[in-house]
């Protein structure tokens, strides 16, 4: 199955099921490579429709305290971009349907080499990329080679994107749109569902692509509300905080970590499956 199909077939399936999808974010290698790999493998059964996998970076400028800490934990336990790709490769040994989107910052990919990266990402089974610090103005850096290689380029649309900007942002976007519900960083404030609904109406005037909404979605109730106006709800910091809550004093995963985190994901997914 080609990488492009997984996202499309997931959203078609969700449409048939008459519900929005749950997009779950974890940071690759957090809190350690083994736990992170096991958690990723269990996410689909727990109710995750799409997995967003964070590529660890020392300076995650768009992220709040929870995900910053996750990045540092992953790096301290030896995470690297090569390790992230390896994690996807292993995940694909047992899962050929759940879309995997890599999210992160450009510098590690720039050091890896963008063309080598897109080749290796496709080979590993990655479906798309979300790059925080590559606006349309810098598309030739990675967006163009990634799309040529068959990866989806999922762009962030924000409350500051006016209609003129929206057209530029939507150009070269594929797979789905990630609507950032607040002007801010991850894991902080939450937007009102009504405000999101209004904003999405504007975005939908310009695109047929599915829209997932993220930033500030923490509870099953918020997931349910978001699912009423959007095609997907992204939860990141709440999952990361659950990981953090299940570390022992030395920062190692407690035995119950996987159950607790997948339990939270099932709970969140419940908001979309009435």
């Amino acid at each position: 199955m080609s990488s492009g199909d997984r996202i499309q077939s997931t959203f078609s399936r969700l449409k048939k099921e008459g519900r929005a999808g749950l997009v779950t974010f974890i940071t690759a290698g957090d809190p350690d490579p083994k736990t992170s790999q096991q958690l990723m493998a269990q996410l689909p059964d727990a109710g995750s429709d799409i997995i967003e996998l964070g590529m660890p970076f020392s300076d995650p400028m768009a992220d709040g305290p929870a995900i910053q800490a996750a990045n540092l934990r992953a790096l301290a336990s030896g995470a690297s971009l090569m390790g992230t790709l390896d994690m996807v490769r292993r995940f694909r040994e047992n899962n050929s349907t759940t879309p995997v989107i890599l999210m992160g910052y450009f510098n590690p990919i720039y050091q890896y080499g963008p063309s080598r990266f897109v080749t290796d990402a496709v080979a590993a089974g990655v479906d798309g990329l979300i790059m925080v610090d590559l606006p349309p103005e810098e598309d030739e850096e990675l967006c163009d080679p990634a799309r040529t290689a068959g990866l989806h380029w999922v762009r962030l649309v924000t409350p500051t994107s006016n209609e003129g900007r929206l057209k530029q942002v939507l150009q070269n976007t594929s797979g789905f749109i990630y609507y950032v519900s607040i002007a801010g960083i991850t894991g902080t404030r939450s937007a009102a569902a009504s405000a999101i609904g209004e904003a999405l109406a504007t975005v939908r005037k310009h695109t047929q692509l599915p829209i997932a909404v993220g930033f500030g979605i923490n509870t099953a109730e918020q997931v349910r509300e978001t699912g009423e106006v959007a095609d997907g709800a992204v939860v990141g910091s709440a999952i990361i905080r659950e990981i953090e809550n299940n570390l022992d004093a030395s920062g190692c995963a407690k035995p119950e970590l996987l159950d607790r985190v997948t339990g939270l994901v099932s709970d969140l997914a419940g908001g979309l499956r009435s």
Binding site: D133, P135, E137, L156, V157, T158, T160, N162, A183
Partner: peptide, 12 residues
């Protein structure tokens, strides 16, 4: 150089 920033900041 360039403008490697989050989309939220681009309009600003």
């Amino acid at each position: 150089g360039g403008r490697f920033v989050a989309e939220t900041l681009m309009p600003l």
